[in-house]
């Protein structure tokens, strides 16, 4: 009687479903994660033609770079700001006192980040195809989506660590402080070849730079023969931040707020 098991599938399903409802009902989250990359793409990728960037036309180049930017934002905000505010509310403490499997909570957040990220990539692809000269094959679109969806994982783990480091009120500012400079220095806003030398030297140490390289390859950029190197750096980022997040999660044990 006491050893009845709750239905794990149901827990993961409900946790994910309600994570969606919760996020969709916060207009600030839904709008800002989707609107920012879209506006940037329309402004920089579709409004004026900069000719060929590498092997790619302007609209296709920026589809990959702002797609990367969007996916990263969805993961960093969903995890970073979400976890920090739920810690602040005490919802996290209530859940930790309950028999909820902690993995269900993180799985739900990952699913929401992935779906928001995919929605951004699809929206930009449609905009680029209709209003710009994006002409991707179905296979290329699938490759782009696959690269960016898997690319959510390192930023989800980074967001998780930030969510445990930041306070509920400072979290949006702290996440932006990571997100925006990192995106800029990785060449997601302005192509890396136009950036100062010092930034070019920093970029290879930043995760978004490597994810964007995978996205460029997916939409037909000249192969740089460093795919595994990019994947390797992203893996290292994932592992380092995951370890940090687990450490901070444990430290959070028994901490009270307010």
């Amino acid at each position: 009687m006491n050893h009845l098991k709750p239905n794990m599938f149901k827990i993961f399903w409900l946790e994910t479903k309600y994570e969606f409802f919760k996020s969709l009902r916060i207009p600030a989250f839904a709008i800002s994660t989707i609107a920012f990359p879209t506006i940037f793409y329309v402004m920089f990728g579709l409004s004026f033609n900069q000719g060929l960037l590498g092997k790619l036309n302007t609209a296709t180049y920026y589809l990959a770079s702002y797609g990367t930017f969007g996916v990263i934002g969805s993961a960093l905000f969903g995890f970073g700001v979400g976890i920090a505010s739920e810690r602040g509310q005490g919802w996290m403490r209530l859940k930790r006192a309950s028999p909820m499997p902690p993995l269900a909570y993180f799985f739900a957040k990952l699913m929401v980040s992935v779906v928001f990220g995919a929605a951004i990539v699809i929206l930009l692809t449609v905009l680029g195809s209709v209003f710009g000269n994006v002409d991707l094959s179905f296979l290329q679109i699938i490759k782009l989506l696959a690269a960016l969806i898997l690319g959510t994982i390192p930023f989800a783990s980074m967001g998780m660590a930030l969510g445990y480091l930041a306070g509920p009120n400072s979290a949006p500012a702290i996440v932006n402080l990571f997100y925006l400079p990192m995106a800029f220095a990785s060449g997601l806003w302005v192509p890396i070849q136009f950036l100062p030398k010092i930034v070019k030297q920093i970029a290879p140490f930043l995760a978004p730079y490597h994810l964007s390289k995978l996205a460029f390859a997916a939409v037909g950029a000249r192969p740089d023969n460093a795919t595994w190197q990019h994947i390797g750096v992203l893996l290292v980022y994932t592992i380092v931040f995951l370890i940090l997040a687990v450490f901070l999660y444990r430290r959070d044990d028994g901490k009270t707020y307010g």
Binding site: P6, K10, Y18, Q89, W91, L94, M100
Partner: peptide
Amino acid sequence: IPGIPETLKVREHIKLFSSYY
């Protein structure tokens, strides 16, 4: 605790928590 997520309904909060047991 100060609160729980504001954008879930009463019913949804209860259903989610019930699923853990």
